[in-house]
Design a binder for these strands. Structure first.
Length: 481
DNA sequence: GCGATCAGAT
DNA sequence: CACATCTGATCGC
């Protein structure tokens, strides 16, 4: 539960919570089932609690990552040999049966709360004796193990995106996915309306269905500019890297899960493995959905120019003056040796940033010029976004035209303005019968500026707090104040 | 004294 | 830089 998730992270109307495992027993009925979209720590709230005892559905890879999860401080202790064994934050979720003194196996106290599901495999899950839902997982293009959930039951169908990046190839892949086709607003390869398919027949209403809701990754809801595709970002970076001397060492600041595309693109382009620390190695080795990732990593620091080892504890090959993950960008203040390792080799830092498509083109051209003129460059940027900005979100929602769209997170600082804006932001992307009659299809033509919208609402609204209250009341439906 | 929660920095 | 993470302060049981 990243802060700002409406309705305690329940997906209405089912007794299912997503990415939130905190204790709410004093407020309402506990969830019958929990879904975990991925293992970033802000989605694991309450899961470290020893008293948590719910069933948690997740992907196979998320389960492996979770059981191997180690916080940084524990990793550092392990590195200094102050820890004989790795301390794993979520190990209590799986307690193996133990051997008793007489050699038998005791299941007393054993349990395994993490229920892994394969992708694209509809599975019936019981919420009670009388109620069940069918759950299907789809890769979310966010980080290893990250998935979206389709939940179908007698109370309707909802799609929960978790955190995701809905770039064009991702939409095309969804549009062709047999487990989602019945919910598509428009068949992939057809334009316009098929004669006789207007839903007037009455006997075939179950052929095409409408999602009741999409629970949407709204981390970048207010970003209204286009951002580069991951492929454009990595290919640009690799081009710049290839302009540096072959003696250059690189530190790739993959500071959280989700930057693996950078490692893979580098390995591919330079035909080289990437040095990773013990912890990353153990995680990446357990990612079965990505055998290529597993194949490009090495623990041998001296065997490669490319390093993605601990962010705050680089190996000696990429250690330079002024530790930490900050490259000495400022040419004015950086001393000449500040980007040299102990052997005098040049170390270049690669940092993921947020950058629009236009800014990226400019940066690529400028940096190319610098490198070709032999100017010293100690850091390279790569605009690898792991969340979709508004244009991608609108395209994604338009693919399904659900009855409503619910934000996975709201920014508490905006006091509900972002939620209030959302209704307007997805005008024309929802099911026709619930879209206000006056609205037009604004896909591709809308010139919505979220900042302006928020500002306008702020002006009109003397008590912004009211918006927040109206916004999250009841079943989590958005109510425009 | 522990855990949950938040502010703040990176 | 980054919307994920860590640290340290504060509050409540």
């Amino acid at each position: 539960m990243p802060t700002g998730t409406p309705d305690n992270s329940f997906i209405h109307p089912y007794p299912i919570r997503v990415d939130d495992f905190s204790d709410i027993s004093s407020t309402r009925e506990p969830a019958k089932l929990y879904l975990l979209t991925h293992t970033h720590t802000d989605h694991l709230n309450g899961l470290a609690s020893r008293s948590f005892g719910g069933r948690v559905v997740c992907s196979h890879d998320a389960k492996e990552m979770l059981l191997r999860h180690e916080v940084y401080s524990e990793r550092a202790l392990r590195e200094m040999n102050l820890r004989a064994e790795n301390s794993k934050t979520f190990r209590h979720l799986r307690v193996e049966p133990r051997k008793t003194e007489d050699g038998n196996v005791s299941y007393v106290g054993s349990r395994d709360l993490l229920v892994p599901h394969a992708l694209h495999t509809p599975t019936e899950v019981y919420l009670s004796d009388k109620q069940s839902v069918t759950i299907t997982l789809f890769d979310a293009n966010h980080c290893p193990g990250a998935v979206m959930y389709l939940v179908e039951g007698d109370k309707g169908a909802v799609l929960h995106t978790g955190d995701f990046r809905a770039e064009p190839w991702f939409l095309e892949s969804l549009a062709r996915n047999a487990f989602l086709q019945r919910y598509l607003a428009t068949p992939p390869a057809s334009v316009g309306t098929i004669p006789g398919s207007n839903g007037c027949g009455g006997t075939h209403t179950d052929v095409v269905q409408t999602l009741d809701a999409i629970y949407l990754d709204t981390a970048c809801l207010l970003d209204t500019i286009d951002v580069p595709t991951k492929a454009d970002a990595t290919s640009g970076l690799v081009t710049l890297m290839s302009l540096l001397p072959v003696t250059t060492l690189f530190f790739i600041n993959a500071w959280t899960w989700g930057y693996e595309d950078i490692l893979k693109a580098i390995a591919q382009a330079f035909r080289s493995k990437i040095h990773v620390d013990r912890y990353k190695h153990s995680i990446y080795s357990s990612i079965y959905a990505d055998p290529f990732l597993r194949s490009i990593i090495t623990k041998d620091a001296g065997s490669t120019r490319f390093h993605a080892c601990e962010r705050f504890d680089h190996c000696e090959f990429v250690k330079v003056d002024g530790q930490g993950d900050k490259p000495p960008y400022a040419a004015a203040t950086a001393n000449a040796n500040s980007s040299m390792n102990t052997q005098g080799k040049h170390v270049v830092y690669v940092n993921p940033v947020t950058m629009g498509t236009a800014a990226w083109k400019l940066y690529l051209e400028e940096t190319r010029q610098k490198l070709q003129h032999g100017e010293r460059v100690n850091g390279l940027l790569i605009p690898l976004s792991r969340h979709s900005p508004l244009p991608e979100l609108r395209a994604f929602v338009s693919l399904f035209r659900p009855k409503r769209v619910v934000p996975n997170t709201l920014d508490p600082a905006l006091k509900g303005l972002d939620g209030a804006c959302m209704q307007r932001m997805f005008e024309g992307c929802l099911a026709p019968d619930v879209t206000p009659a006056s609205s037009h299809d604004t896909i591709g033509t809308a010139n919505l500026d979220a900042g302006d919208l928020a500002a306008a609402l702020l002006k009109d609204e003397t008590e912004p707090g009211d918006v927040a209250l109206k916004n999250i009341e009841g079943d989590g439906a958005l109510v425009l104040a």
